[in-house]
Write a protein that binds this DNA or RNA. Sequence first.
RNA 1: GGGAGGAUACCGAAGUGGCCAAACGGGGUUGACUGUAAAUCAACUGGCUUACGCCUUCACAGGUUCGAAUCCUGUUCCUCCCA
Length: 426
Amino acid sequence: MDILEELRWRGLVADSTDAAELSRRVNAGPLTLYCGFDPTADSLHVGNLVPLLALRRFQMMGHCPIAVAGGATGMIGDPSGKSQERVLLTPEALSHNIACVKAQLARLLDFEAGANPALLLDNAQWTASVGYLDFLREVGKHFSVNMMVAKESVRARMEDRDTGISYTEFSYMLLQAFDFLVLNRDHGCELQIGGSDQWGTITAGTDLIRRKLGRSAHGLTLPLITNADGTKFGKTEKGAVWLDARRTSPYRFYQFWIHTDDRDVVRYLKFFTFLPEDAISNLEQQHLKNPGARPAHRALAAAVTELVHGPAALAEAMRASDILFGGELSGVGEATFQDLVGEVPTREIARTQLDGAGLPLVEVLVHAGLSPSKGQARKDIEAGGINVNNTRQTDTQRVLTTADLLFGKHLLLRKGKRTYAVVTAC
RNA sequence: GGGAGGAUACCGAAGUGGCCAAACGGGGUUGACUGUAAAUCAACUGGCUUACGCCUUCACAGGUUCGAAUCCUGUUCCUCCCA
């Protein structure tokens, strides 16, 4: 099975340039391919995982991946799939973001692979020094505005008269095409991959290469990941799910995958793990036989968490999850409980506040971040959604004292079925 | 430059002097049922308060009135039509 067949059975091919020709090329020997990642934030999120893992999949089949951090394109803003003109990042924010994103890219690709090590580049390297006039003469001349306007990413914005599109974002396509040209020329890069919203800019690149260098290059897009219920993939109530542990803890990350809709879980195993076809269909069978045990969910969560955060963090996330969702909490000892501290969102509180009269539960809930305000905390209690040490609280007047501390030290708070927080007295 | 219409809570959208913290729908939170799933049903969904109630909100600033999201004046922004 070649890489294209591999991607195809996983459902990871949205579109590609001449499929027969591309397939001939991948079978002819290792090829170099690239994918760009724009530093719009100081961390990648789960959505970025799809193209990033695709690079890795190519690498595993012997091809050479290049991850490009968009130091240059990030200064412009990609209009694809955006309905609003973007606010430009400050140069400081941008360089901070690039450094962080680079570190994340570096963790998920193999730079030591003997014959086909991955490469990490920043497109500012070859773009920053090019003068405006040179760029217009060398690159701009090869683009027809008529063709650019016809591309979906631009057209959508042109049709929306409220927002429109700035000349800056309009130029994005040229910059990305220029990237592909440079990579093709200097690194023999023959293929660009990206999300399906990148189709227009990718083909702009292959066109430019044909015109400038007289060679053919390839493009392949990956599908947009959709949730079965129609919501946006990778978003929770608390916002995006990030790869950075400081933004999304490994425990939360693991839980995110555990919560996958049944209807999505097999697709996501294909999208987000390296598990082979038979392992996935085996999990699918198990899942269909006994969905309540959620074997597929567990495998998905474990695989992705390990990939992103490593085996140690995965073990901790699983241990915390087992303690909280594994059944009776009453038998949990102090040492086990200690595993939860820091995994589950944890806040500290001065022990003296619990002495004597104690502290109203509503205030503790706000402090722990489970309720946004005391009024809401009260409503949460009235709705029966608040548990302290796994006991439902029904009294909005409830006051917590040192007597409520587990092991003389911790409070285990829960809102709803699965949102936990620990408050530690010190 | 002229004319018409519009701006309401997280989003969409009612409301045209008191019964408006503001209908309804979506979203969100919680509960029941379950499997940390989905679907369904129910409650809640500006802040403070045990509650009576109080406070802040209907683009912004003033005004009329016992009383304004609703009327008047000015300002900002948007849409449409004419030039």
